[in-house]
């Protein structure tokens, strides 16, 4: 990629040897613009997930509800509902796994594209400016995408270990969402970790949401000014929503009470 200084006439620079046609995705993904498309599309999937996840979690605040002849935490019912989607067309839990595969696939692509673009960009300026740059518009969010992204991925691993697999939660009970969340976030360092990670996520989304419109070529003078507002909105929504949980747990607003629910619900698979 680096340009060397060759002297001599320039000619025939646009004459390309005929190349074999590659499959569409491989061909498209091979350029930086293609990779940015992949970043943007997988980013949209991620944003959709993050917002959906946050809204689902708001059920924490509904506390205990009566269902049939028992009483249960609303969020636990919601957890079970996710596994029931499209039953009986699909067996129990399969739809959730499909969604998980989509998310995993999107994450892998997002990471790979980010990694290869970072490598490309490092190579594009092997010798750095020797004095500090005076950035005009590049903001903290846009310049720290790589770091906020790494924080979010590491947090994601912890989050899964904590609340999905339970490895990082000594008092984990599968399916008892309310209880697990309370026990986990009652630990002050964990609560702080969640808040920090979600702020990083918010910063990542603030640039990501705006940026994906550019990458996908969604530009129109009529709505371009709304792209910034939308980015601010998404980032605020996610940060406020997600950070409210550790704060609520620490403040005692969310407090697991084993006596409030019927035992059958507790033992549900």
């Amino acid at each position: 990629m680096a340009q060397t200084l060759n002297r001599g006439p320039v000619s025939g620079t646009a004459v390309k040897p005929p190349s074999k046609k590659k499959p569409f995705f491989v061909d498209f993904y091979s350029t930086a613009v293609g990779k940015k498309y992949v970043m943007a599309i997988t980013g949209i999937i991620g944003i959709g997930f993050v917002i959906g996840h946050m809204i689902g979690n708001l059920k924490m605040y509904l506390g205990v509800v009566t269902e049939g002849d028992g009483r249960a935490y609303d969020i636990d019912i919601y957890g079970e509902f996710l596994r029931q989607i499209l039953v009986p067309i699909l067996p129990h839990g399969v739809f959730l796994w499909i969604m998980r595969f989509v998310l995993i696939g999107a994450l892998v692509l997002h990471l790979h594209a980010a990694y290869s673009l970072t490598v490309l960009n490092r190579k594009a300026r092997p010798v750095k400016y020797q004095t500090p740059r005076d950035y005009q518009v590049a903001n903290f969010a846009s310049r720290t995408m790589r770091w906020t992204g790494i924080i979010v991925v590491l947090f994601l691993a912890w989050h899964l270990a904590d609340l999905t697999w339970g490895w990082a939660n000594p008092d984990f009970v599968k399916g008892a969402v309310y209880r697990n969340l309370d026990t986990s976030l009652s630990r002050l360092p964990v609560a702080i970790l969640y808040i920090v990670a979600n702020i990083a996520l918010g910063i990542h989304l603030f640039h990501g949401t705006w940026s994906l419109f550019q990458s996908l070529g969604w530009s129109s003078p009529r709505f371009n000014q709304w792209r910034r507002y939308l980015a601010t909105g998404v980032a605020t929504l996610v940060v406020v929503g997600n950070c409210s949980f550790p704060i609520a747990v620490q403040a005692g607003i969310i407090d697991y009470n084993p006596d409030a629910v019927t035992a059958t619900q507790e033992a549900a698979p």
């Binding site: 001599g8 006439p9 320039v10 000619s11 025939g12 620079t13 646009a14 004459v15």
Partner: peptide, 13 residues
């Protein structure tokens, strides 16, 4: 530039 790209003109800069 088009002719340079096609190889019909050699450019010495």
């Amino acid at each position: 530039a088009r002719q340079i790209g096609l190889g019909n003109v050699k450019l010495w800069n």
